[in-house]
Nucleic acid binder design. Structure first.
Lengths: 228, 228
DNA sequence: CACGGGGTTGGATCGACGCTCCATTCGTGC
DNA sequence: GCACGAATGGAGCGTCGATCCAACCCCGTG
């Protein structure tokens, strides 16, 4: 047999501090936050941690596993800080807004959860929503459908925001000018064919994502309260 | 200079019927429908159309462009068949259900729209929703927020369904057994830590995605009617 | 202290991907 | 019939995720 590693190149020294899964996930989160989803490549990760593929794959199943764990980590931080408000309505707004803000700060989390919506971190979110709906007096039969609808709404907005953030990152502009550009495009829509879109262009340029999200939650809560 | 193509291999004959963008998109849609998102590779596309990369890239900017156009094509088929119902409530349910069914039949479309929510096809959907909300008597100021919330809900459910379809495709099982498996997992959740999830496991196993989607729409409509 | 086996690490290597580039060929107006 | 732009096919490039294995370190046993 041939000695396949009989090259002159000396092997780089082995790391002194041992690698851990936590360390890898932390590094992945930082890379995702600073450079978006496409910035997380295993090659870049090996460079950042000054290690090789073997070390990483020893602690993590594959790239999907790494992404999922990173997303879980971010959400876990949010859900743990959930306040137990006395008013279920206020608590529900706070809970959903917490997830909104987290995904707004880490857009890649939104994309990841729209890909894998059954992660344990989302189970906690589901549970929180369900319990608060109970406290709100929603009958048990309707609770399941209501919780599903609300969670889907939150994830929908999250995916939307994540996508916008990606577009913004592509042509580095801030949120304000991005919205103004979109509004201009809407305003240019044919008023005969698109009366609503044309008319809504102004509001698109001025609206606040966060506030609009809360309006949506309120619409939901108002609708849910009519359920028998 | 060296003649770089002076190989012995004869060039394969040029196609007689000319390639068109429509043809390429149609082939892409069929590949996506039969094998999911990962089945659409440019290499496979060149084989299917018995052509080369150059021909494809002449008609299409890149793979993202191709995916987006394919998704637009599918949705355009749905939106064109929209019925003008007299009752705006019924029409709204029909419109949203149309999009739901389309994405249910072509899960990759859901994933694509959660990635690029500002495509012209969705502008039509937005317009339809906005106009029907107007007919429903929603005041102009609230219409923008309400339409945004509803569209986001629909896209959220769509992304969720697309993801479930992907999971099902991975371990080829039908919808029923897939739901039963998920329900079993929910039922195994700790009843003390996850009382709601544990209790909802039964409904998860028995529920119908389509009906639950419509319940969500109804919750929305009920909530919207409270807007002043 | 010797030693050896298992947990851990680094990196060469693989197959597949999107995409670029260019020689070639077709079609059409002159 | 000829010239020229549009259209085509495919070799090749750079990069990706993933695999695989020799090298390495730590620690328990004798």
């Amino acid at each position: 047999m041939v000695n396949r590693t009989a090259k002159g190149s000396a092997r780089s020294p082995r790391r002194t501090d041992s690698l851990s899964r936590e360390l890898i996930i932390q590094a992945a989160i930082e890379m995702l936050d600073s450079g978006g989803e496409k910035a997380l490549t295993l090659r870049a990760l090996t460079v950042r941690l000054s290690t090789g593929y073997g070390a990483i794959y020893h602690h993590v199943k594959d790239k999907g596993d790494l992404l999922a764990r990173a997303a879980d980590e971010v959400i876990a931080g949010v859900m743990s800080g959930a306040v137990a408000d006395t008013d279920p309505r206020t608590a529900l707004r706070a809970l959903t807004l917490g997830l909104f803000d987290a995904i707004d700060a880490h857009p890649w989390v939104g994309a990841e959860f729209s890909r894998q919506p059954w992660r344990p971190a989302l189970l906690d979110f589901y549970e929180g929503v369900g319990r608060l709906l109970d406290a709100l007096g929603v009958p048990e039969k309707a609770r399941f459908d209501a919780a599903g609808a609300l969670v889907n709404y939150v994830l929908g907005v999250a995916a939307q925001n994540a996508s916008n953030a990606r577009l913004r990152a592509g042509s580095d502009m801030d949120r304000k000018t991005f919205l103004e550009n979109a509004a201009t495009r809407w305003a240019q829509a044919d008023p005969d064919r698109y009366p609503f879109v044309h008319a809504a262009a102004t509001q698109l340029g001025e609206h606040d994502d966060r506030e609009q999200f809360l309006v949506g939650v309120d619409i939901f809560l108002a609708g849910i309260s009519t359920l028998g």
